[in-house]
Design a protein around this nucleic acid. Structure first.
Lengths: 220, 220, 220, 220
DNA sequence: TATGAATGAGCCTTCATTCAT
DNA sequence: CATGAATGAAGGCTCATTCAT
């Protein structure tokens, strides 16, 4: 009777599980390294080493370094939008709260996780991988854009927000997120502590200001 | 009848003039190629060819590819800030106008020029070239940050703006600029026309919203 | 019927064996080429070719051309001295015999082998590779010096040699060896047969003269 | 009326003198650099700089780096041998004194001067310049060899020295000189002070020992 | 003559990719 | 499936040499 201790599992199972886990482990390792050092500066051997396999094995799962990159992006775009759509659909509070909640959620679920590196990665390497960038636009940016737009529309419809030029107003929320994420993954590591940004305060302040600009009847 | 066109100048002068022109030509070529293809994917030979010289000549002026990169960064920001500081110092209109003017100026003088690619480049390659990132932080981000801060402070001092948390409020103006620039150099080229962003409208709208959020007595 | 000849061994083993043999093969090839053409004039590709591998393979075993050089030096001196020290420690004959034996041994084990090219190489390239020269001084010259000094001391202690100024007397034995080796690897190949030196006779004659100068009671 | 102040000389003269001095200055600079760093590691630009001229000027006088090398050697072999031959011919003291004088002279006139670098240079680069090595053998080694041989022959003829095997005995005097010179130009700069060699003491001691070995009636 | 800007062949080194085991 | 030794194309950089001025 199998126990819970991994070491007691039949080796066959363990191997099999590992076998299936391999690509994931490689993608995980690649994500971290690509984000940290960029595509060109990351060596496949390093990725393999971080995943605990040999260089040859990597090429068993990914025909080339570029394919690995594509897989990293594809694997990390996670269709979270249907889930979020529903969540926000059922939201009953006022739109100020909803915007605040949305932004904080984004930070907690994406911004502060390694997944945020993906966006940095895609934007950085868009020139080298236009195909990927387009794909990302379609799968992530587009839906995200739509989601935010729906949130703002709700505020306008409920008479909470002014009559906003939605096509551009969405960017008032997107821009701070993108900025935060680029900052975190590029300049932050090179800046002295005095220039560091506290992400939560940052988001709070930005949202505060933006909402004030959006509200039909700004409170004093 | 000889004209003043360079090609007609005596050859004697051409060499000397070229010597002084070379670094500039190389930096110009490097700017375009680095922005277009990224640092790693650009070969020095290519840069040299675009500047109309041989590979060896490039190394006559720049000790290494990385130094060329630094020169590109340096050349495209030097002195801009002292000029701007003075300009804003002498501004006599109200602070709403000043903010609008500052943002539009930025777009015209940096955002819409190839120089904007520099920032994208630095953020993308920051991981690989921390030294460059630090340099950029010191020479560009820092002064820019200070400049914006002064502008906002002016608004507060003159009773036009609310009492803003300046440390974060500066990012309300910085974030849209960085976002616009990242977008332009990464996703934009891969997006269908329907998703394109008109930079001037974008800035107008953002500034509008932000100012509304900042004003002590928002107008209806 | 399979024999033991390498070419008949199962291919399976060949790779593994080669892996261990590679560094040695490369060092061997490098020794010959460095000695023949000098360090700078030898291309790593050539070394690799002589060892029957590709350029890349060389860098699999040696991080740089300079490290290859170091390995060549290291490989051709290691451990010789402990062996010799013991040998001379156990020597029972008189000191004249010991000196003769030592010098002849040196010729047979170093002087006449390609390893003698190393010393020429190190002395020639010392200016360019001070690190190597220092290493050589420490690992070869120092121990060799000490060994000879012990031999002479023995002669003095046993009353066979005069009271020699040992610090300088050691060079009476070292100088002819160094000279012979420099000569062999530099001028000899360019000299007409009439000027060639017979190494064994050379050593015999030098030792003869030197011993005569060292003996307390020179024989007629 | 011309004064002694150089600055008052007609420029034409000065230029003309410099013009004729150029090759010599270049050779002088090259000698130092070749000796110090070896042929390959010395850049022609450096040589030119040390001679106070531009790189282009060097090629005005020497068609190639190799030709410069050859000129350095040729220029520095100075047919001093006829002079020395006469000097020794007229020597009236005993042969022990003569040998001592010859060796000390060599050190003072060659060994301690930059000219000693030539021998080091030729031996080091003999492999790359066999032609030069042969030339050196003919012009320097040969005559030097003959000169020493004559000195020893004198000692034998005068009954001061034993009946020496002259063909090899000459090397008893040559070897210490060559060794000293190689040492000085290769290992010495890399050795700790404790391992430094005092050249004058070195020669004294060596000559002492060698003479003792050569004398028919060694003194106690 | 003298200059020094320009050249480009050549070399060391890296690293994605292959393949025999 | 997994390994890791081997490959070789590619790229940064050097430097002897040329040549217009």
């Amino acid at each position: 009777m199998p126990t819970n201790r991994p070491s007691d599992e039949p080796a066959t199972h363990r191997r099999a599980r590992r076998k299936e886990a391999r690509p994931g482990e490689l993608i995980e390792a690649a994500l971290h390294l690509f984000v940290e050092k960029g595509f060109a500066a990351t060596r496949v051997e390093e990725v393999a080493a971080h995943a605990g396999v040999s260089k040859g094995t990597l090429f068993l799962y990914f025909p080339s370094k570029e394919d690995l990159f594509k897989a990293v992006v594809r694997e990390n775009i996670a269709g979270r939008f249907t889930e979020w759509n529903e969540e926000f659909e059922q939201f009953t509070g006022d739109s100020v709260e909803l915007v605040r909640y949305a932004m904080q959620s984004w930070w907690e679920r994406i911004g502060m996780t390694p997944a945020s590196g993906i966006t940095k990665l895609v934007m950085s390497e868009a020139g080298t991988f236009p195909e990927i960038a387009a794909f990302y636009q379609q799968e992530v940016i587009g839906p995200g854009h739509a989601l935010i737009r729906r949130i703002l529309q709700r505020g306008v419809d409920r008479g909470e927000f002014r009559d906003l030029p939605l096509d551009y107003a969405v960017y008032s929320l997107i821009a701070p997120m993108i900025f935060l994420l680029m900052w975190k993954h590029s300049m932050a590591p090179c800046c002295p502590p005095s220039h560091q940004l506290d992400p939560v305060s940052f988001i709070d302040t930005q949202v505060d200001l933006i909402l004030r600009g959006m509200l039909k009847h700004p409170r004093p």
